[in-house]
Amino acid sequence: MADNGKRDIIICEDVKKWFGDFQALRGISTRVYEQEVVVIIGPSGSGKSTWIRCINRLEVHQEGRIIVDGIELTSDVRNIEQIRSEVGMVFQQFNLFPHLTVMQNITLAQTWVRKRTKAEAEEKAMALLERVGIPEQAHKFPGQLSGGQQQRVAIARSLAMDPKIMLFDEPTSALDPEMIKEVLDVMKELAQSGMTMLVVTHEMGFAREVADRVIFMDQGQIVEEGTPEHFFTNPQHDRTKLFLSQIL
């Protein structure tokens, strides 16, 4: 239980990860409670992506424990599939399926993983496309959309699975400024609706507005964590100060 009485939904204990001889995560320990919005910042190569990819096991951690919604991530196939369908992920490069229409992108996993009928899945897809503001694009192919529209489709695609947690890995860094706003608006709306979110981003405005907590990472470890106010008014660690002075 977190100190505010909410349930912990992600627990990481001393998570370590190596790529060959290179250690990318040097022991990450933290807990995320339900409906919390956590923003992760840090210099390039600090292991942000690696960590959140470990949470839905796109990367496999070698030491420590990760428990998501009460299920520990082990090599048990059933656990992995269950967790993946509870955890949505949005990538920097969108990763929409170019050979499927927007509609098919959103309904594919609903029918195969959630076993919904086609009609149900399409209804859900349309509702989500309304929510992210592009219902008219449903029958186009991803290649015909702008970057911002593609990223919103990607968010809708994840939401269609009714995830309990959403992971965002730099969702706006491949976008032009005006498109960044459309995506951030969708994310803000999502945060206000009570979704648990882990967001890697360098959009400090977003962090200040919606984050419950900011985590600063460097060299594969958590260097400092606290509220947005703490970070923007009173950072403690030298690394944090240096980093913030560079990006603000």
Binding site: R26, D218, Q219, Q221, V223, E224, T227, Q236
Partner: peptide, 8 residues
């Protein structure tokens, strides 16, 4: 607020 004592 958590601040790491020193980097591992």
């Amino acid at each position: 607020v958590y601040v790491a004592p020193e980097l591992k």
